[in-house]
Amino acid sequence: MQIAFTFTRLAVIVRRWFEIGPDATMEHGTRVELRLLVPQPHRGTESAAQPMVVDDAVWRADLFDRLDRPPGSFSAAHHHPTFDGVEPSDRVWSDALTADPWGWLAAQLSDVGSLLDVAGYDPALADDDADDLREQVPHIVATARRFGPEDPLSRDEDFRLTRDAAERVRRMLDLIDTPDPEVREYLRPWLEQA
């Protein structure tokens, strides 16, 4: 499940996320991405439905816990301040993010011009959207908290919210030389998803 907050040129995508690292460490929590809406030509009549294309990733925050650590510790919380095309930059760790993830997220989204600038985009892209986005920050953060790691979900609940990412989970598992049978059993729903 992905929830999109869309504006004129900007979109914020919020979702539950689950992943497994090359060392078989499993992480879960909220993923928040700042993306760009690609302008589309008008189609049909003045009443026709119009296409919406959410494309270029600008910035990402992963408010994650590791499954082998206490819930709510945000032991794997990090962010990606830039993207190279569709690939995120290396993880950036922040004491401020770990100490107050929801406050940190609100502060980041309240200064979207700076996020664009750091990512190499013209901050003017936010001119029409910055105030509207800032007004929605409490709603975005509340949505992000719904998917946060403080209240652990069962494996099956996690899968229900992340089943669209099954192909990515399978690719992650392929990067592990010899996955432990317990890890493979935990991942079974993602592995069996068509």
Rank of each mutant, 00 (worst) to 15 (best):
A106V: 01
W104M: 01
G113E: 13
S89F: 04
G85Y: 00
T6D: 12
A61Q: 09
E87V: 00
G44S: 09
T98P: 06
L37A: 01
S47H: 08
Q108Y: 10
R69Y: 09
R9C: 03
M52W: 05
P70V: 00
R16H: 15
M52K: 06
S75Y: 09
D62F: 03
T30L: 04
A57S: 14
A4L: 12
R43Y: 07
P22H: 14
A99I: 02
V54F: 06
S47K: 04
L63D: 10
D62H: 04
L97V: 00
L63F: 07
R69D: 14
T98I: 05
R66Q: 13
L10G: 05
S75A: 15
T25E: 15
H78K: 03
R35Q: 13
A11G: 05
A96S: 15
R91C: 10
F7A: 05
F64D: 14
G113M: 05
G72Y: 08
R69S: 13
R15G: 04
V86R: 15
V92R: 15
I3G: 07
D90Q: 12
V32H: 11
L67N: 11
A77Y: 08
T8G: 12
D55C: 07
T45W: 08
W104H: 08
T98V: 10
P101Q: 04
H28N: 08
R31Q: 07
I20Y: 11
P81Y: 05
D68M: 12
D111F: 05
R15Q: 07
R60L: 02
Q40W: 06
A77M: 05
F5T: 02
R69E: 15
A24T: 01
A4D: 14
A57P: 06
V38S: 14
A76R: 12
F83A: 05
M1I: 01
W17A: 00
D55V: 00
D65T: 01
P22V: 04
A61F: 12
W104Q: 04
R66N: 07
V86G: 14
H28P: 02
V92W: 12
G103D: 13
T8H: 14
D111H: 09
I3W: 11
I20P: 11
A48D: 13
S89R: 00
F83K: 10
L97I: 00
Q40Y: 06
P101W: 06
R69N: 09
G21H: 14
P41T: 03
P51A: 12
R43I: 05
D56Y: 03
W93M: 10
V12H: 10
I20D: 11
D95Y: 05
D111K: 01
P81E: 06
T45H: 08
R66W: 07
F5P: 01
S89D: 13
P70F: 04
E27I: 02
I13R: 03
S114N: 09
L97K: 05
D62A: 07
P22K: 15
P88F: 11
D100I: 02
S73P: 06
V92L: 15
E33T: 02
S89H: 05
P39F: 08
H78D: 03
